[in-house]
C-alpha cells in the first residue's frame, strides 16, 4: 500500500470559507435555540394545560418530532411550501424553521420534566399559604426546577448544534457545506473532513467544558 501524503496546507488556504461556515453554524444554531426556547415554553404549557384538547395537541407535537428523523423536517420545510402555498423559503429560513420547531419539542420535554420533578409537597406548601398556582409556579417551583433543567437543556442544545449540519443538505453555507465545497475544490476529502470533525469536536468540547463550569457554579448555591 502506498503511503498517503497528508496535506492540510492546501485545505487550510481556504480558511476564510471555513470561518464563514463556522459563522453559519453558530448563526442557525443560536437562532434555533432562542426560537426553540420560546416554542418549547408554549408546547410545555400546552402539555401541562388543564384543557384536554391542548394537552393532546402538545403531546402530538412532541411525539411527532421525537419519532421522525430531523432530515425529513429539513426537506419538508424546504420543498413543500413552494409547491403548496407558493412560498419560497431560503435555505437559511428553512433550516432555522426546521431546527427550531424540532428543538421546541425537545425543550418542551426538558421544561416539563424539570417542573414535574419537583415533588407535590412543594405545591402543597405553597398553596397552603394561600398562594395562587401561578405564584407557586413562579416563586417556588420554577426556581427549583431551573437548576435541574440546566444539564438536559445543555445536552439538547448540543444536539441542535450537531443537527444544524443537516442544513448542508439544503445548500446552506454552514460548516459542513463549506467543507464539501473545499473538498471538491482541493480534491482533499480526507484532510478536509478530518479537519471539519476536529473543528466540531473542539467547538462542542469547549462549549461542554464551559457548560460544566457554569453548572458546577450553579450547584454550589
Amino acid at each position: 500500500m502506498q503511503q498517503y501524503e497528508w496535506d492540510f496546507g492546501s485545505v487550510l488556504t481556504y480558511w476564510p470559507m471555513l470561518l464563514q461556515g463556522l459563522w453559519g453554524t453558530v448563526a442557525i444554531s443560536t437562532l434555533a435555540i432562542l426560537l426553540g426556547i420560546v416554542g418549547g415554553g408554549l408546547v410545555a404549557a400546552m402539555r401541562m394545560s388543564r384543557y384536554r384538547s391542548l394537552r393532546i395537541l402538545g403531546t402530538a407535537y412532541v411525539e411527532f418530532y421525537r419519532n421522525t428523523p430531523g432530515i425529513v423536517h429539513f426537506f419538508w420545510v424546504y420543498y413543500a411550501p413552494p409547491v403548496v402555498a407558493n412560498v419560497n423559503l431560503g435555505p437559511l429560513e428553512a433550516a432555522v424553521i426546521a431546527l427550531a420547531t424540532q428543538s421546541s419539542a425537545f425543550y418542551a420535554e426538558v421544561l416539563r420534566g424539570g417542573i414535574q420533578s419537583i415533588g407535590n409537597g412543594q405545591w402543597e406548601g405553597a398553596t397552603a399559604l394561600g398562594m395562587s398556582s401561578k405564584d407557586a409556579l413562579r416563586r417556588i417551583i420554577v426556581p427549583q426546577a431551573a437548576r435541574r433543567m440546566v444539564a438536559p437543556f445543555v445536552e439538547r442544545s448540543f444536539e441542535i448544534i450537531k443537527t444544524s449540519s443537516l442544513a448542508s443538505t439544503l445548500a446552506y453555507g454552514e460548516l459542513l457545506y463549506q467543507g464539501m465545497q473545499i473538498a471538491s475544490i482541493t480534491y482533499r476529502p480526507l484532510e478536509t473532513y478530518t479537519l471539519l470533525a476536529l473543528i466540531y469536536f473542539l467547538l462542542l468540547y469547549l462549549l461542554s467544558s464551559l457548560a460544566k463550569f457554569a453548572e458546577d457554579r450553579l450547584q454550589e448555591v
Binding site: G125, T127, A128, G130
Partner: peptide, 29 residues
Amino acid sequence: MSVRKRVGMVFQQFNLFPHMSTIENVMEG
C-alpha cells in the same frame, strides 16, 4: 386561596422551600 389564607397547615414532611433561607421561607407568604 382565601380559605388557605385563613386556615394554615403544618405538614408531616414540612414542605419547606429548599431554595430559600429560613427567614425567606417565613416571609414568602
